[in-house]
């Protein structure tokens, strides 16, 4: 397993980024990502993978596709270990042995530090359970996609209620539920009684009021800044937090402290 990372001295931590613009070579995309992140005040970011390398639709990549995504992430982490924290992408519909072997390769023997789930399998599926049991053993966090899409969720796509179901089955695993802007008020209420779930602030446009609502319902220790770059813009998504009516200590937790705690960074007592 990896040694503990030191927290950056200053700057925000973004828990939800990707490297999948697709129109740039990876080196150039990393440089662009870091230039824009720095300009927005982001010092460290969780890289969740170029999911398009798995399948164009993010649907159900096979083990080979999963490995392509994770190799891409590993390359980013090795190139910029002080800026990227990599999470291991999995499709639980693949044989469980393949997922557990990938965790071994990427996390136990490799540099990745958490798991990422998108829309391959709904969070209520028992297919998630052996993977979460291994995550518990390793003491690693998980970032899980969720949306209430009024135009219709995709097949297998999880809602916040589905993530809450998963969280209750695995109360010792810390889950960052992605997309406050997609889960919205209903989603916040769904996870309210799941203390092992935080919500990241990404998703949709920075609609006023959502961050304050989440902080009021969940407490500031369960809301964490995420941008979903390059689907979104770092600075605009940071503006979602800076524009929210929060106390300074609450803002610090959302922009930095909570992510540092979830990642177990050294030198942080959030």
């Amino acid at each position: 397993m990896n040694a503990k990372l030191a927290a950056p001295r200053n700057g925000y931590i973004d828990v939800h980024t990707h490297l999948f613009k697709g129109d740039l070579p990876q080196e150039e995309e990393m440089d662009l990502s870091l230039r824009l992140a720095t300009a927005a005040g982001v010092a460290l970011q969780i890289e969740l993978g170029n999911l398009r390398l798995g399948t164009p639709t993010f649907a159900r990549p096979d083990p080979e596709g999963i490995a392509k995504v994770n190799n891409h992430t590993i390359k980013a982490v090795q190139r910029h270990p002080d800026r990227f924290v990599g999470f291991c992408y999995l499709n639980p519909a693949n044989p469980v042995s393949a997922s557990l072997e990938e965790m071994e390769r990427c996390i136990v023997e490799g540099p990745l530090r958490g798991l990422k789930f998108e829309i391959s399998v709904n969070a209520t599926s028992p297919l998630m359970d052996p993977i979460f049991e291994r995550a518990r053993e390793l003491g690693i966090p998980v970032l899980h996609h969720a949306w209430y899409n009024m135009e219709g969720n995709q097949e297998h796509e999880s809602t916040a209620a589905d993530v809450a179901h998963l969280a209750r089955r695995h109360p010792e695993v810390t889950i960052v539920m992605a997309h406050l802007g997609g889960a919205r008020e209903r989603g916040v209420q769904d996870i309210a009684d799941c203390p092992n779930v935080l919500v990241d602030t990404s998703g949709s446009y920075p609609e006023a009021g959502h961050v304050e609502y989440a902080v009021r319902r969940l407490g500031a220790r369960r809301v964490v800044y995420g941008s979903d770059w390059p689907c979104r813009d770092y600075a605009t998504q940071v503006g979602r937090i800076l524009g929210a009516d929060l106390k300074p200590e609450e803002r610090d937790l959302v922009l930095r402290g909570n992510a540092a705690r979830v990642l177990g960074l050294e030198g942080v007592h959030a």
């Binding site: 230039r35 300009a39 927005a40 446009y205 920075p206 609609e207 006023a208 961050v211 813009d233 600075a235 605009t236 998504q237 940071v238 503006g239 979602r240 800076l242 524009g243 929210a244």
Partner: peptide, 17 residues
């Protein structure tokens, strides 16, 4: 599009390189 969008989010767009 205020007050529906956080103001700082749109101000941030002006801080382009």
């Amino acid at each position: 599009h205020s007050p529906f969008i956080y103001y700082e989010a749109n101000l941030a767009k002006l801080n382009a390189d």
